[in-house]
C-alpha cells in the first residue's frame, strides 16, 4: 500500500497555482471581452435581428419582429449584381496589390539598405490624410481634363473618347491605391524576419537566386501574403467610398446599396444584405486560409 501514496502526492500541490494563474488570465481578458461584447456582439445580434424584421414596417411606425427569413432571398436576388461586382472588384484589387506590393515589400526588406526606414514611412505616409480626402484627390487625378487622361488619349492605341473616372478601372484603381499599405506592411514584416543565411544556404545547395526565391523566400513569406490579402480583400469587398467618388451607377458595389437602403429606411433588407455579405466573406476567407495552409498565421 505504501507504494501507492507517493504517486498521488506530486499531482496534488500544483492545483492552487493553476487556479491563480487562471484567474489572472480571466482578469486580463475582461476589458477586451467587454469591449467586444458592447461594440461587436451586441451590434451583430442587433443586425441579425433587424434582418428578420417584417419589411412592411417603416422608421415612423416601427418594425415588427416576425422572423421574416424571406428578407434574405429577396435581398440576394435583388442585389446579386452588386454582390458579385463587389467580390470581383475586391479580388482584382487584391491581385493588383499583390503584383505591386510584393516587389515593393521585397525591395524594402532586402534591397533598401539604409533607406529602409524612409521607404516604410513613405508607405505609411498616406494615413496622415483621411481616406476620403485621398480618394477625392483620385477623383481629380482621374478627371477627364487631367494629365493622366490627356496622356492616355495622346497614345496611338487609345481612342480620343477614353475615360477613366466613373469606370470600373477607376474604382479598382482607387481600391488598390487605398488598400496597398495593408498588403505591404504585413508582407514586409514577414519578409524582414527571413534569415538571409537561409538564402545563402539555398545558393550553396545549387538553387539559383530565382529558385532560391521560389523555394525559400516565397514559402516563408506566405503568412505575410495571406495576412496582406485578407487585410486587402475584406475591407475592399465592403467598401463604398471608392465607388461613391470614382464610380458610376453602373459600378455600384454592395456597400453602396447597403448604405442607400439604410438611408431609404429599409432596415430589414439593408441588414439582410449586410449579414449575407458578412457570411460570404467569412466563408471565402475560411476556405482561403484553409487552402493556403498557414496554420502559423495567427
Amino acid at each position: 500500500m505504501a507504494h501507492v501514496v507517493p504517486t498521488e502526492i506530486p499531482d496534488a500541490p500544483p492545483a492552487p497555482e493553476q487556479q491563480r494563474r487562471g484567474l489572472a488570465g480571466y482578469l486580463l481578458l475582461t476589458p477586451g471581452s467587454l469591449w467586444l461584447a458592447v461594440f461587436f456582439i451586441v451590434p451583430t445580434v442587433s443586425l441579425v435581428a433587424t434582418s428578420l424584421y417584417d419589411p412592411s414596417g417603416s422608421l415612423e411606425f416601427g418594425y415588427q419582429m416576425t422572423g421574416h427569413v424571406q428578407n434574405y432571398p429577396h435581398a440576394i436576388a435583388e442585389y446579386w449584381d452588386p454582390i458579385v461586382r463587389s467580390l470581383q472588384y475586391a479580388l482584382i484589387a487584391t491581385v493588383a496589390c499583390m503584383i505591386l506590393g510584393y516587389p515593393l515589400a521585397y525591395a524594402i526588406a532586402f534591397k533598401a539598405g539604409r533607406y529602409k526606414t524612409i521607404l516604410l514611412v513613405a508607405v505609411i505616409a498616406p494615413f496622415f490624410t483621411s481616406f476620403l480626402v485621398r480618394t477625392l484627390a483620385w477623383q481629380y487625378l482621374l478627371g477627364d481634363n487631367e494629365w493622366v487622361v490627356t496622356f492616355l488619349r495622346w497614345l496611338p492605341f487609345t481612342g480620343a473618347e477614353l475615360q477613366l473616372i466613373n469606370t470600373p478601372v477607376a474604382v479598382v484603381a482607387g481600391l488598390t491605391y487605398n488598400f496597398l499599405p495593408f498588403f505591404v506592411l504585413p508582407l514586409y514584416a514577414s519578409l524582414e524576419k527571413i534569415d538571409h543565411r537561409l538564402l545563402e544556404a539555398a545558393g550553396d545547395l545549387y538553387a539559383s537566386p530565382f529558385r532560391g526565391f521560389l523555394k525559400v523566400t516565397l514559402p516563408l513569406s506566405m503568412p505575410g501574403v495571406v495576412a496582406g490579402t485578407l487585410l486587402t480583400f475584406i475591407p475592399a469587398a465592403g467598401d463604398y467610398i471608392n465607388d461613391e467618388l470614382l464610380g458610376s451607377p453602373k459600378t455600384r458595389m454592395v456597400g453602396n446599396e447597403i448604405q442607400s437602403l439604410f438611408y431609404a429606411g429599409d432596415y430589414p433588407t439593408a441588414s439582410a444584405l449586410s449579414v449575407a455579405l458578412m457570411v460570404t466573406i467569412v466563408l471565402l476567407v475560411a476556405v482561403y486560409v484553409w487552402r493556403a495552409g498557414t496554420d502559423e498565421l495567427v
Binding site: 534569415d195 543565411r197 537561409l198 545563402e200 544556404a201 539555398a202 545558393g203 550553396d204 545547395l205 545549387y206 538553387a207 539559383s208 523555394k215 525559400v216 514559402p219 516563408l220
Partner: peptide, 30 residues
C-alpha cells in the same frame, strides 16, 4: 563561379536549415 555552380557545400554555423521544410525535404534540397 556562382555558389550554386560550385562542387562545394557548406555546413553553416547557424545550420541554416529551412524551417518550412521537413528534415527529409531539407536533405533532399540539393
Amino acid at each position: 563561379l556562382k555558389p550554386y555552380r560550385r562542387p562545394v557545400n557548406t555546413v553553416f554555423q547557424s545550420y541554416a536549415l529551412f524551417p518550412h521544410l521537413t528534415i527529409r525535404d531539407n536533405v533532399a534540397f540539393g
